[in-house]
Every structure is written in C-alpha cells, then in structure tokens.
C-alpha cells in the first residue's frame, strides 16, 4: 500500500511515553537507576549524556530488549507504529546485498532475491528519495560510506510510516548535507505529529531542534526544555559526573 511520507493528517499526534522508576542491572553492574521522565506526544525529545551513561540501554529498554524493572508505558490514541534507527548496521561488507535488496528485505515478505514487489516499489522509491539514496540503489551495502548506510537506516525506519520514531545517534557519519537532510526530515515528521526520541551528542543541534532534552548518566541528571536546562554549568556537570 502506498504510504505518503508527507501526509496531510498533521493533527493526530504520535504516542507519549512514560518512564517510571526504571532500573536496569546487567550482571552485577547497575546501568540505570530510578529513571523517571515523560516523552510528550508529537514532540522531538533528545537524550544526551556521557559515553557509558546508559542512553542506548534506556532506548533499548523502551524497545523491550532489556530486562528492566519499573514501568515504561506507551500511550497512544491508536496502534503504535515504531520506527527505529540503530546506531550501526553490523554485517559482512563482502555480502552482495544492494540498497534495493535491503529495502526489499525489510519491507516485504517475498524473498529479497526475487526483487522488490511492485506494490512496495512506490513507497521504497519515496523513502530512498527522501534520504537521498536514489542514485545509490544498485550499490552493494559494503560499498556505501558510513553516512550513506546511516541514510539507509533512516529510510527503512520510515517504512511503514511510524508514529513513534526512535533513533540512536542518527547523525553519526552524516556529512553537512546529510545533517541538513535529517533535520528537515525530523521537522517534517514532527509536523505530521510523529513522536521522536533520539540520542544525540551535538548540543547545538539539540538546542535548535528538540522540544525537550533529558540528560542521563545512570540516573536522570536533568530534563526539560533545551533553552532552560542546557546551561554551560549543567552540561559541564553532566559530562564530567561519574
């Protein structure tokens, strides 16, 4: 079914997410302690923090891939359609899988080696065009640059069209054009009511785009509007705290 990327239903908002006293322990190591904050529907919410602070673990807890305790609740007026952009795509670079093959693999039930099904072609074409990969669709994944692979991950996250988009450092490897493309895409998605939760390091961009920001380093250090909470002192404390 053709799913327009730009769709006029800009008023229906995506789900909201509540983290309520979430803890995560792996082995003897405490990864997250007493995490509580909310992601408002239809907003862009950024997660920042120092390396090893538990950001990816928190994101994966939301995906149900961690043995967390506490509650993570997703509230939505309708069914939740989740899109996820992982940090990296780990694969054997010598495998002869093209961009088209990859998109066929994620979108359709028919085996990817039979090619893209006609019914999925328009939406795949649009997604690839949106992330600027149309000219690279016959390229093998191993021959793409890191940034191009990131764009590909973004493209797959848009099919089916999500109302909750989760991204783990999507800017990694993207050049200036790529960064601009992503920013435009995020604003477009926000305009369509998609709730976006993403891990990011560039505080300047966070300030520019995000509606709310939460800083995590095992526990929540601060959470609120970027303009208010992202003062120099707080950032310094957050990234030097252990």
């Amino acid at each position: 079914m053709f799913v327009p990327l730009i769709d006029n239903k800009c008023c229906s908002k995506g789900p909201g997410v509540l983290f309520d006293r979430v803890n995560l322990t792996l082995g003897n190591t405490s990864i997250l302690e007493n995490i509580s904050f909310t992601i408002d529907p239809g907003t862009i919410h950024c997660l920042i923090g120092p390396n090893g602070g538990g950001k990816t673990s928190l994101l994966r807890s939301l995906l149900g891939q961690m043995p967390h305790t506490g509650e993570i609740a997703i509230s939505s007026p309708g069914p939740v359609v989740m899109g996820y952009v992982p940090q990296a795509l780990d694969f054997d670079h010598t495998l002869p899988i093209t961009v088209d093959d990859f998109m066929a693999m994620v979108c359709q039930g028919r085996p990817a080696f039979t090619g893209i099904k006609a019914v999925h072609r328009p939406s795949i074409d649009q997604a690839l065009s949106r992330v600027g990969l149309t000219k690279k669709r016959k390229r093998i994944l191993g021959q793409l640059s890191g940034g191009e692979r990131q764009r590909l991950l973004l493209a797959q996250a848009l099919l089916p069209f999500p109302n909750l988009l989760l991204m783990d450092e999507p800017m990694a490897g993207l050049d200036k054009d790529g960064g601009r493309m992503l920013n435009d895409l995020l604003m477009e998605l926000k305009h369509q009511g998609v709730t976006i939760f993403w891990i990011h390091h560039d505080l300047k961009e966070v300030k520019a785009i995000a509606d709310r920001v939460t800083c995590v380093n095992k526990g929540v250090l601060f959470s609120g509007q970027p303009g208010l909470v992202l003062s120099s002192q707080q950032i310094l404390d957050a990234f030097s705290a252990r």
Binding site: G64, Q65, M82, V106, P111
Partner: peptide, 20 residues
C-alpha cells in the same frame, strides 16, 4: 522461503529486526 527476509534481517541487526 517465506521467512528468508526475516532470517536475513535478524542476522544484520537483531535489535532492528526485533523492532520490526
């Protein structure tokens, strides 16, 4: 054959596959 894509996806990125 019907599960070919899913098996392939699972080997690429289990986390992403799980979300899908």
């Amino acid at each position: 054959l019907p599960l070919y894509n899913r098996m392939l996806m699972a080997s690429f990125n289990p986390s992403l596959a799980h979300v899908r």
